[in-house]
Amino acid sequence: MAQPDNKTHFGYQTVAAEDKANMVADVFHSVAAKYDIMNDLMSFGIHRLWKRHTIAASGVRQGHCVLDLAGGTGDLTSKFSDLVGQQGQVILGDINDSMLKVGRDKLRNLGKVGNIEYVQMNAEALPFPDNTFDVITIAFGLRNVTDKDKAIASMYRVLKPGGRLLILEFSKPIVDPLSKAYDFYSFNILPTMGQLVANDGESYKYLAESIRMHPDQETLKNMMELVGFEQTSYENLTGGIVALHKGFKF
């Protein structure tokens, strides 16, 4: 959330709100090429199951128009492209052009063409008319957004009545021993792994810090309700390390 004095968090640092987007961009420019392999290593492949759960909860059908926000390397877009068919459309949106390029190349190599558009965009000001999408997803992206309230409001605006928003994001572990092990892993093993594999320990230190600064399950649910989402709910996955928030626009 942007702070009143136009300051915001970048990991544990407090920075000027207008600087955060560029700082986050630098992180993702740096990790884009090794993003997928690092995701598999860091999560032991479990991120694929979290994403499958999100797809199951999305209810995406033939002909739907889907926005995969902060879609990065296109894991969700790939599956949505299969589900919406040629009558539907998937927009893979990301603020970072390096991530978009990696995603576009990956999906084209998989033969996913025809119903996917790639758009560089800022989640706080989505460049689409009101009531455009049946489903919007944002997976592991919201915590990097400078003004989260503004981004959620923007998503609400472009969602069709009856449409649903799914936010898959790191959250607060609900089991104490797991929380301690997770802290140790995040602040000791993760940056080392990032240094060894992606040659960038700092970016993975930011990842761990940004997760801790992200709103917990209930706070995020309230944020969704404040901009107008109804029937909001969340599911804790892997003991709350990740949570899937869901809300509808009516």
Partner: peptide
């Protein structure tokens, strides 16, 4: 979808 089969558990 004409090329690939998607298998989704607990689909809503």
């Amino acid at each position: 979808n004409g090329k690939k089969m998607s298998v989704i558990a607990d689909r809503q």
